[in-house]
């Protein structure tokens, strides 16, 4: 298996994986979305809320705030010594108190005071609620580790997707150089070089087959390479994207080992 990173920008990473099956790459994609744990607000104690949003709506908004998650620092509270009750080892506490003075006050995610400076909202500018005079909220919230299969708020990514690499199959004997295919390509990645049509950027191809359909002489064929994939991961800022992929791979290894052991005990 070969992995080559082709793009790395902020929360986004794109890489090519070669020499694996579609089943493998799909299991990696699903593990990234459903199994990589992050921190998210899970319990809200509302001391006071006389704003226009109901307590439930407010709590739902709070839950969706992505939180930065230091790798390996916190475990699931079910596996903790407190047995899921919630303690400083598995929970992070945030407090927030705000009251509108004379004008309108905007409550931002940056107004939260966290018990752990490593676990904070990924952006301090998230608008939680707007308060008009005489309105105030006072809340205490608890964040804990969880996975995307329990609730989407724990997903570390917005995008975790792959596509097949393209193989451009050109038959120069059938081609009449009419250049219909070049015009048909929505990504404009086909070019004429001498007596040949070439693809200048195979990675940008969406495998739409428009060029092959435009060709009346069957000179072009677009083949999917099902052992080579372009994988895109776009994180939310909770965990760096390369760390998300690494953690997902480790989870997959652990799960395969568990399966192997189970099979051994069954056959024994």
């Amino acid at each position: 298996m070969d992995v080559e990173i082709i793009e790395r920008d902020g929360n986004r990473i794109r890489f090519i994986v070669e020499g694996v099956s579609p089943a493998f790459i799909n299991s990696l994609r699903r593990t990234i979305m459903a199994e990589v744990p992050t921190m998210a607000i899970d319990e809200v104690v509302i001391v006071e809320n006389n704003s226009v949003l109901f307590d439930e709506i407010l709590a739902h908004r709070l839950g969706l705030i992505p939180l930065t998650t230091p790798e390996g620092k916190y475990g699931f509270s079910e596996d903790c010594d407190c047995q899921g009750v919630g303690c400083p080892k598995c929970n992070v506490t945030f407090t927030l108190k705000k009251e509108a003075g004379e004008g309108i006050a905007v409550v931002y995610s940056g107004d939260f005071e966290s018990s752990d400076p490593e676990v904070v909202p990924v952006s301090p500018d998230i608008v939680i609620i707007r308060l008009v005079p005489r309105q105030r909220i006072e809340i205490e919230v608890f964040a804990k580790m969880g996975t995307g299969k329990d609730h989407a708020k724990w997903q570390p990514v917005t995008v975790s997707a792959y596509k097949y690499c393209m193989e451009f199959d050109f038959d120069s004997e059938k081609c009449t150089l009419c250049e219909d295919c070049i015009e048909a390509c929505p990504k404009q990645i086909l070019k004429r070089e001498g007596d040949e049509i070439v693809c200048i950027d195979p990675l940008a191809c969406t495998l739409c087959d428009a060029c092959a359909e435009a060709c009346d002489f069957d000179a072009i064929k677009i083949n999917e390479n099902d052992t080579k994939f372009i994988f895109t991961v776009e994180g939310l800022g909770c965990i760096p994207p390369e760390s998300i992929v690494r953690q997902a791979a480790q989870i997959l290894i652990k799960k395969s080992q568990e399966l192997e052991e189970q099979m051994k005990t069954m056959s024994a």
Binding site: L53, V122, S123, P124, I126, V127, T158, L236
Partner: peptide, 20 residues
């Protein structure tokens, strides 16, 4: 009412961008 925290479709964070 208030801008949703995340995009309904993809889950991307948007509530910190509306004011700007």
């Amino acid at each position: 009412m208030e801008i949703p925290i995340r995009c309904f479709t993809c889950g991307n964070l948007i509530a910190d961008k509306f004011e700007e």
